[in-house]
Amino acid sequence: MLLREVEYARPASVQEALRLLGANDGARALAGGQTLINVMKARAASPDVLVDLADIGELRGIELGSDGTLEIGAMTTYSDIIGSAEARARPILGEVCNQIADVQVRNRGTMGGNVCSNDPTNHLPPLLVAIGATMTIVGQNGERSVPAEEFFLGVYMTAVGPGELLTKIFVPPGKGDGFASVPIGKDGTCIVNVAASLDGGAPRLAIGCVDAVPVLLRPDSAEDDAVRAAVRSANLDPPWDVHASADYRRHLAEVLALRAVAQAAGRT
């Protein structure tokens, strides 16, 4: 419960935030804090400086472009997504956000925080990979765009480098999506989760909790046999932990892949 000493700043602009992040190697961006504060409570991580992004208005908000693309600010909370009329352009977003943790966490936890922490059991990394989202990263040297499938690099590691910020997530239009998971109990940590999207040609499947990053699969078709074959040929080597063996996770990956695809197929 008791954090190590830390310095704190709450800048009002992205530029100011970048300056603060760049000024200290031990600085970290603080979004909703629903992961980071916990990690600091356990003293598993102890940044020297927290750069609170709460006052940066440009990082918040959901806009629906004329082509149907959603532009989501990194500081947009799960509750914002759930309650947003615009976000319903891609219904799976609100549905999955509504499965994350609980009301309190959804009220403060952010899209950007979820993907930047890249806990392998999080919901959004596989979802954003499956639906082909694109991330905008800003640094001192300007802005770049990274597809979700290249964004996640390892446990708690992403393409956002030191001194950089994730500012926006772009989600293309679509509705043929599915999400299936086995959590602990009704709403605990995911043991395995799978997101599927059948929009935009070949199916895209992303499996979470089985590797350091979501495992993207592209079965030949949405038929059961094709999906099953894709999962098997991925030769998943999931981690063992207190909640599940590697075998069980491997098995669930296949079952949940079929279920996520079936749900997606029902919506195309």
């Binding site: 504060i37 356990a42 927290l50 509750s79 309190q104």
Partner: peptide, 27 residues
């Protein structure tokens, strides 16, 4: 708890329900 799971510390912050163990006072 010490992991933000139990909700015993829940308060309304500017009208929004939050767990007060999952944020700093300065926030």
């Amino acid at each position: 708890c010490d992991t933000g799971n139990c909700g015993a510390c829940s308060v309304l912050l500017d009208g929004t329900l939050v767990k007060s163990c999952m944020m700093l006072a300065v926030q």
